[in-house]
């Protein structure tokens, strides 16, 4: 079969170590995105036109540019523009946090806006303070709408971190390439198997999250 190399030496350990880097970048970015995204979403709700316009431009820029362009901007651009030399991994975390926060901010905004005015009015009429109204009436409903697309966003971030290898981060795809190079002569078919295994590794992580997102979606709509 030509796939024996996968079980020889430290191949599997190396792939898992690479996957660790992938997950470290992803989880760090997700963790930083959550507070920033929630903050962005709540700033959107302020009826301040200047603030709204600034956030809109930021969100549209992040959304419209390919993630690889954003990685290049931070990795190469920050050195030229500000004299800051980020490592590939730091640049990656910055980009995926900026992206995650923008997307999550928009989701938070949409979730908060979807709560009808009558919910606030009824809560106030019942004598709840604005803090109580937010924590006990608005937040639980908003969370239910927010959760499915947010879980989806996590899978998108995990998949997209594969682009980090193009700015020199040694994550799981780059480790895969090193394994292919190492086995080039003894196992000429290593490229086929290694990329299949890489796809499988991502699938094993992302698929359950996709299923969870769909399950949450179904539960909140019924």
């Amino acid at each position: 079969m030509g796939a024996e190399f996968l079980f020889q030496g430290a191949t599997i350990q190396r792939l898992l170590a690479g996957l660790g880097v992938t997950l470290r970048i992803s989880l760090l970015s997700v963790g930083l995105s959550i507070p920033l995204g929630v903050l962005m979403g709540m700033l959107f709700m302020r009826r301040n036109p200047v603030l709204r316009a600034v956030l809109r431009v930021y969100l549209d820029f992040i959304r419209v540019m390919p993630q690889l362009v954003l990685l290049f901007l931070v990795f190469f651009g920050s050195a030229t523009a500000f004299g800051l030399n980020f490592s590939g991994e730091v640049a990656s975390v910055i980009v995926f946090t900026a992206w995650g926060a923008a997307e999550l901010g928009d989701l938070v905004r949409a979730a908060l806006e979807s709560i009808p005015r009558s919910q606030y009015d009824s809560a106030f009429a019942l004598g709840l303070t604005s803090r109580q109204t937010f924590l006990r009436v608005v937040l639980p409903q908003a969370l239910r709408r927010l959760l499915p697309p947010s879980v989806n966003l996590v899978t998108r971030i995990i998949k997209t971190t594969s682009l980090c290898m193009l700015i020199g981060v040694v994550e799981v795809v780059r480790v895969g390439q090193q394994i292919i190079d190492f086995n080039r002569f003894d196992y000429p078919q290593s490229a086929l198997w290694t990329y299949a295994v890489l796809a499988l590794l991502y699938f094993v992580i992302c698929w359950p999250l996709s299923l969870l997102s769909r399950w949450l979606e179904k539960r909140s709509s019924s």
Partner: peptide, 17 residues
Amino acid sequence: NTPSLVQLFFLYFGLPK
């Protein structure tokens, strides 16, 4: 549920094998 980059590399580097 798999990254486009891995799909691309599979097609370009893997399938010729």
